[in-house]
Design a protein around this nucleic acid. Structure first.
Lengths: 223, 223
DNA sequence: ACCTGAACACCGTTCAAGT
DNA sequence: ACCTGAACACCGTTCAAGT
């Protein structure tokens, strides 16, 4: 019996959709959103741009496929939790942490509504919403509220780090500048913002994110 | 007494930051996010690209200024409401409707965290959160949850219409295709998504958005 | 079937030169 | 001080031509 008839594919040598997506993720992880270009990708893969287009529809397809691969991994890892509510928290925090590590996911998801990676998240949330006993009529709206909130926070976080990266400073320094700008606003017109400016660089993003999830969950319970 | 010493500025003739922002909004309204380019803008204003850079720092500055002008107008118009909760709903719906009319606002806000237009929204929300009697310790997180939710929904809506525009179909047709794609998913792996696919093209986006706001508000009340 | 790589049609931004 | 517009350094995508 001969070995599998795929002879020319020495490890990592032939081009494939998987190798392209893998290389895309490496590029995105190391250089950020702006780092993924067909030129950088074809150089890294030692081919021409046209070769990539044979395996991939366009840049949007590439971004969706890349985020899908990491979202799927996060969801596989983060199913822990005894109650539906605990599982919702676990999924939400798992995604938050991953977006913190890889900000490009945040903006990729924000720009791919209804696509598979987003659907994966919605599915997980929806299952728990159903398990919580939310009446059928409200299941969709409830699930979507959770989803929109998670994507909203993710998008803001992604934009924050992208912004900081462009200016070649770290996230902390960037938030510090933002706090200063807020503190300098007219206290008559922006009383809340000015009063809250001092907290900005100190606050715990993750805890605040979870507070929002808890607000939504407590709202669901109260319905 | 002579007239004001600004003689050469016949109405709408000389270039200014205001005229540039005005023209940018026109471009964004008529052609969408992708319609705003320095080439289109300089043609419309009958000048060179360099002239625009004299009044404006870069494209980001332009986008922030354009969204700030419409966000400020929305907030000025939408202060109605007798209770803090009613005012939060009014602000949220006012923004939702404006993003529905001008999807580019949704993505501009999502990409400008901490910038003036977003701060305006946060300020309004924060004032009402304070008025609701939320304890100081929770005011920031509560306000941010509302803000992130609003920006999250806005971003998704913007991405939806941008997607549809690219494919030269309307939003309704686009959601129809999405529903069909969802319905075709594996019902074992995606039970919630499949079960909900039929509702997708029929549901009322605005009502769902408001449901999410109400979930958050009821969570705030319950704290 | 899959890959090459030059070419096309764009971008945002800069900058010497003008007034 | 303000404007001109060509030039620079990029993009994503296409496509004739190769194997």
């Amino acid at each position: 019996m001969p070995t599998k008839p795929k002879p020319s594919a020495r490890r990592g040598e032939s081009l494939s959709r998987e190798r392209i997506i893998e290389a895309s993720i490496e590029l995105l992880d190391s250089l950020g959103e702006a780092g993924l270009t067909f030129r950088a990708l074809s150089e890294r893969l030692a081919t021409g741009a046209g070769a990539i287009y044979w395996h991939v529809a366009d840049k949007g397809d590439l971004l969706v496929a890349a985020s899908d691969s990491v979202v799927a991994a996060v969801l596989e890892a983060g199913v822990a939790g005894k109650t539906p509510e605990a599982r919702i928290r676990a999924v939400a925090l798992g995604l938050f942490d991953e977006i913190d590590r890889r900000p490009w996911i945040g903006s990729a998801l924000a720009r791919a509504p209804g696509q598979l990676p987003v659907v994966r998240i919605m599915e997980r949330l929806g299952q728990q919403v159903v398990a919580m006993g939310v009446p059928p009529k409200s299941q969709w709206a409830t699930t979507n509220a959770l989803l929109s909130y998670i994507l909203g926070v993710g998008g803001q976080n992604a934009a924050n780090t992208a912004f900081a990266t462009t200016r070649d400073i770290d996230r902390q320094a960037f938030l510090g500048e933002m706090a200063q700008a807020w503190a300098g606003l007219d206290a008559q017109a922006f009383p809340f913002t000015v009063s809250v400016a001092a907290q900005l660089p100190l606050h715990d993003d993750r805890a605040d994110f979870l507070a929002g999830i808890n607000l939504l969950l407590s709202g669901v319970r109260g319905q």
